[in-house]
Computed example of a mutant assay.
Amino acid sequence: MNLPNKLTLFRVILIPFFVFFLIAPFFDGYGNYIALAIFIVASLTDFADGKIARKYQLVTNFGKFADPLADKLLVCSAMICLIELNKIPSWVVIIIIAREFIISGFRLVASDKGVVIAASYWGKFKTVFQMFMVISMILSLDFEWWTIVENVLMYVALALTIISLLDYMYKNRDVLKDTK
């Protein structure tokens, strides 16, 4: 197993620890900082694994499958926890998770037809903004203006989620056509 794939697996392994420290009531206000550190490390592995895989030609089929799955698991786990912590509205998380299911289904149909749907820049921007949104909500600074920062990041992440969905569907609309 190459280094990028090990980084991807490490990101997945970090998720239960992240969730535990974020929502467990045992740490008197420090658990969120431990969770934040874990989330940042996991997010950095996302950027590192792709960069290393491309730079050293270590792209594998496992990596193509596992890397986006690890990203989805990390970000969706974080957002679901943030619902429980009353930091993000559930309707925002539902839209974001619905987009992930739609794109995953789209990729499955494309794969069945021998088509690989690569990540787009819109999708990458979406992931970056979602990660910054999660970080800002976990950090939850006690400043009046911080709520504005959190809301701006949330709405930008939501907009990019919808834009990236529409972009994927438009660019790959032929995948859904029946060819008999």
Results as ranks from 00 to 15, higher is better:
residue 152 V to S: 00
residue 172 N to L: 09
residue 53 A to Q: 01
residue 58 L to C: 08
residue 8 T to W: 03
residue 136 S to W: 01
residue 138 I to C: 09
residue 55 K to G: 06
residue 1 M to N: 11
residue 156 V to I: 15
residue 100 E to R: 05
residue 66 A to M: 15
residue 80 I to G: 00
residue 137 M to R: 08
residue 113 K to E: 09
residue 12 V to N: 06
residue 9 L to H: 12
residue 176 L to H: 11
residue 4 P to K: 04
residue 7 L to E: 02
residue 150 E to L: 08
residue 48 A to T: 08
residue 18 F to R: 01
residue 47 F to P: 01
residue 132 F to E: 00
residue 163 I to K: 01
residue 49 D to V: 04
residue 140 S to R: 05
residue 45 T to H: 02
residue 47 F to Q: 02
residue 21 F to L: 03
residue 111 S to Y: 12
residue 91 W to V: 14
residue 152 V to K: 00
residue 19 V to Y: 13
residue 145 W to N: 07
residue 113 K to G: 06
residue 168 Y to E: 06
residue 1 M to T: 11
residue 179 T to M: 03
residue 78 A to R: 01
residue 173 R to I: 15
residue 167 D to R: 02
residue 43 S to N: 06
residue 54 R to P: 06
residue 58 L to H: 07
residue 27 F to M: 05
residue 124 K to Y: 00
residue 64 K to E: 05
residue 143 F to A: 08
residue 144 E to C: 07
residue 143 F to I: 04
residue 109 V to F: 09
residue 74 L to Y: 04
residue 84 E to A: 13
residue 107 R to V: 12
residue 97 I to F: 12
residue 156 V to T: 12
residue 102 I to A: 09
residue 157 A to Y: 02
residue 158 L to F: 04
residue 102 I to G: 05
residue 172 N to A: 10
residue 83 I to R: 04
residue 6 K to Q: 13
residue 144 E to V: 14
residue 80 I to M: 08
residue 165 L to Y: 07
residue 107 R to H: 08
residue 39 F to S: 02
residue 143 F to C: 00
residue 85 L to H: 10
residue 173 R to Y: 14
residue 70 A to D: 01
residue 172 N to F: 12
residue 41 V to K: 09
residue 39 F to E: 01
residue 26 F to H: 13
residue 132 F to G: 02
residue 113 K to H: 08
residue 100 E to T: 09
residue 169 M to N: 05
residue 63 G to P: 02
residue 170 Y to G: 06
residue 69 L to E: 03
residue 167 D to T: 05
residue 72 K to Y: 09
residue 105 G to Y: 06
residue 171 K to G: 08
residue 159 A to H: 10
residue 81 C to Q: 08
residue 31 G to A: 12
residue 176 L to T: 13
residue 37 A to R: 10
residue 28 D to Y: 14
residue 107 R to I: 13
residue 101 F to R: 04
residue 26 F to I: 12
residue 12 V to M: 14
residue 48 A to V: 03
residue 20 F to G: 03
residue 107 R to M: 10
residue 96 I to Q: 03
residue 131 M to A: 12
residue 108 L to W: 13
residue 125 F to R: 00
residue 160 L to S: 02
residue 28 D to W: 11
residue 133 M to D: 02
residue 23 I to Y: 03
residue 71 D to T: 00
residue 87 K to R: 15
residue 166 L to A: 15
residue 179 T to I: 15
residue 148 I to Q: 06
residue 34 I to E: 04
residue 137 M to Q: 10
residue 156 V to M: 09
residue 171 K to C: 06
residue 109 V to T: 14
residue 12 V to C: 06
residue 135 I to M: 06
residue 76 C to Y: 10
residue 149 V to F: 10
residue 177 K to W: 09
residue 6 K to S: 13
residue 22 L to A: 04
residue 60 T to M: 10
residue 32 N to P: 06
residue 77 S to A: 14
residue 75 V to G: 00
residue 82 L to V: 13
residue 42 A to G: 05
